[in-house]
């Protein structure tokens, strides 16, 4: 994993030799990844490979300890930052299971988020009226009824509604880097299409995506530039979108059968 292709182009995210643990158990064991602006990277892998952990470690969740390594987001080292500082630096995590916050209206929550991030960037907070307009637009964009703005955050939302709500937050927060954690889980094809269309509409040359997924079906709708296979806390294989198809056909069992050192030469 040492021979990442050297690049002169600016990176959006560079992860170097990242080791991390949860409850004293090592989960990430030397993760390396380089994401350029505008790229979409998919991270696939069997259960327990460390896919979700990657998102949590990068976003600074409590209980996830970085043992060593670095992660640089748009030129700034983020691993020492508080979770909210990373968010303000432009990192967005779309949760696999978005939590409910009863009584806190979606609108209130969205405005608090956007205000906090704008303030951190030295921008003026939106007035209530301005924000309401933006929120309504975002709501329409993800095909949620406007009533969802007044409801408690994720309170009583169906699985699909929760995911669309995540997408709405992404649209309003305009992050530099989006990590989508198993966004397809629990969604039927129609719901997944809505979410995928939303994500595609947010693709731009200065925004990058990391899509964490177990199945390749989401990648039929969101075309990745690169696909990486994560196993036992490391990326063991990388390729283009066709790698996902290969995985779909063969499953993950082969990973364990191939000697790892041979694989290293294939990476990126």
């Amino acid at each position: 994993m040492s021979n990442i292709t050297p690049t002169t182009e600016k990176s959006m995210l560079t992860i170097t030799d990242l080791h991390a643990s949860v409850e004293e158990k090592n989960i990430l064991k030397g993760l390396n990844l380089d994401v350029k602006p505008g790229e979409v990277h998919a991270i696939m892998g069997p259960n327990g490979a460390g896919k979700s952990t990657t998102g949590y470690v990068l976003s600074g969740r409590d209980g996830y300890t970085v043992e060593k390594g670095s992660a640089v987001l748009d030129g700034v080292e983020i691993l020492e930052m508080e979770a909210e500082e990373r968010a303000r630096a432009g990192l967005f995590l779309a949760f696999q299971y978005p939590v409910e916050i009863p009584g806190v209206s979606n609108l209130e929550f969205l405005k608090a988020s956007v205000d906090a991030q704008r303030e951190a960037r030295g921008e003026v907070a939106y007035t209530s009226a301005e924000f309401l307009k933006l929120a309504k637009e975002a709501c329409k964009q993800v095909d949620l009824p406007l009533a969802f703005l007044k409801r408690g955050v994720n309170e009583g939302f169906s699985g699909g509604e929760k995911k669309r709500n995540e997408l709405m937050q992404m649209i309003l927060l305009k992050p530099k880097l989006c990590i989508l954690d198993e966004t397809d889980s629990g969604l039927d094809i129609d719901a997944m299409q809505v979410v995928a269309n939303g994500v595609n509409s947010q693709r731009s040359p200065d925004r990058s995506f990391i899509i964490v997924t177990h199945y390749q079906r989401l990648l039929d709708y969101i075309k990745p530039d690169f696909v990486h296979v994560l196993s036992d806390g490391k990326i063991v294989k990388s390729g283009d979108a066709s790698l996902a198809k290969e995985l779909e056909a063969e499953g993950y069992a082969w990973i364990h059968n191939e000697p790892k050192d041979e694989l290293e030469g294939d990476l990126l």
Partner: peptide, 22 residues
Amino acid sequence: QMFLCRQRGIEPEKAVSMIVNG
């Protein structure tokens, strides 16, 4: 809940008061 709020950029203090007020 705290992590969701913080991941969206909200200060922990503000997050708590939001959740408590909710």
